[in-house]
Design a protein around this nucleic acid. Structure first.
Lengths: 228, 228
DNA sequence: GATCGATGCGTATGAGATACGCTAAATAGC
DNA sequence: GCTATTTAGCGTATCTCATACGCATCGATC
């Protein structure tokens, strides 16, 4: 992904007014693709299926989007088109907490987006807007911008990684430690087996996202205190 | 992914000795697929390409692997077939630091594995072994197993999220903040623009993985101190 | 040897992305 | 109005892939 993707996301549309007016639009295509992905999964987003939904021919889509891969990039960035919901007031910790929880909400609402997020992709206008916003908010409450950037990145990385188990268990994944049910196999993993004994390991893991997030914030807080 | 994947990963091979002996083996197929993915990317792992490399017919592969999706799951788990390299000695912090750095090394060595890791998948024997090992090590140095599990999960989540920018920049991605070069666009992101001014933002981000990891460990440390 | 049970694999099928080129519908200039 | 120009819509053909099916093959067992 190089120049092509850059132009795709950041290039301006130059419309002269001449020529047949467009019935389709990039926005409508991307929005419908997102709707399909939300409802049926990213795998069901095929050019054919998408065209049917839009009531158009398959090849018409290519007038507005270079190809499937690029469409997915656009779908992803469109999720961050609006402002990231951040609290009206609060210190840096509250802001970053909301960032983490907001990321979590985003990916729970659009599970397909997680694999997109972890694949190679350029930063688009939506994502840039979110990052710019949060850094502005953090500097406003006294956090240096350099620290703000790396702090957001840290929280973001954690949230990105931590949301996966949530998404997957939500989609009806079988018990995470299902294999421990077999005594022969279970014997091979004594430490895990011991953990599974008391109650369901899943149940114990219920609040791990919040737990981990607070630990990350604690760590940032200690850093700030130490380097004051 | 349900029962089928479970059996795939955890089921025993029952060979009676009767019948034509196998020239291919699941292990060889998976290993070759990993080699292709490492060298050319996961996208280049097609059944055709794989069969050519193995000197076999395409359909022969299906005698040993149910299908492409399942093959990818096997490829992923095979990365954790050996023991996770953990330090001989050290406190919980050192152990978890190594875990985080080990995860980072793993995904840098096998960039294709990151999208697999973030997709829906069951836990396999390899991964289970790693988790079991580290919990054993942590309990050995005095950390309760319950806390150990959630602590590993926290570090793991961070590492998983944080390794992505590394992988992508390593594969020749253009500048993360390339779009700031255009003054018109740059003006829309004042906070990012200000950050980009002094030096390359990328350069400043050099040690963000280590930074974030230490913050996560700090956070866990504070938790332990508080709940002693 | 005859049989059985597994493997190896060629062929056929169907889904999916997309290059190409023609048609249709607007505007701009006359 | 008429025509050239420009852009959108899209049918058809092609290429890549995964994979279902069925037959051939090969060793061990009886």
């Amino acid at each position: 992904m190089g120049k092509a993707d850059y132009d795709l996301l950041w290039g301006e549309a130059t419309r002269t007014g001449r020529g047949r007016p467009a019935g389709l639009s990039r926005e409508r295509i991307v929005a419908e693709a997102v709707a399909i992905a939300d409802a049926e999964g990213l795998q069901k987003v095929s050019m054919k299926h998408l065209a049917e939904r839009l009531g158009s021919g398959v090849m018409s889509l290519y007038r507005h989007v270079p190809g499937k891969d690029e469409l997915v990039v656009l779908m992803y960035d469109s999720l961050m088109a609006g402002p990231m919901p951040l609290p009206e007031a609060g210190d840096w910790r509250e802001i970053l907490r909301r960032w983490g929880l907001g990321v979590r909400d985003l990916f729970n609402a659009h599970p397909w987006a997680l694999t997109v997020a972890t694949s190679e992709r350029p930063m688009g206008p939506g994502e840039a807007g979110w990052v710019d916003d949060v850094i502005g908010r953090l500097t406003a409450v006294g956090m240096p911008a350099e620290l703000g950037l790396i702090a957001v990145l840290t929280v973001d990385c954690f949230a990105l990684g931590a949301v996966r188990p949530e998404i997957n268990s939500g989609s009806g994944e079988t018990d995470f430690f299902q294999f421990l049910a077999d005594p022969v196999i279970s014997a091979r993993y004594p430490n895990l087996a011991r953990l599974a004994e008391p109650g369901t390991a899943d149940a114990d893991m219920g609040g791990y996202f919040e737990f981990g997030l607070e630990r990350v914030l604690d760590g940032l807080e200690r850093h700030i205190e130490t380097h004051r």
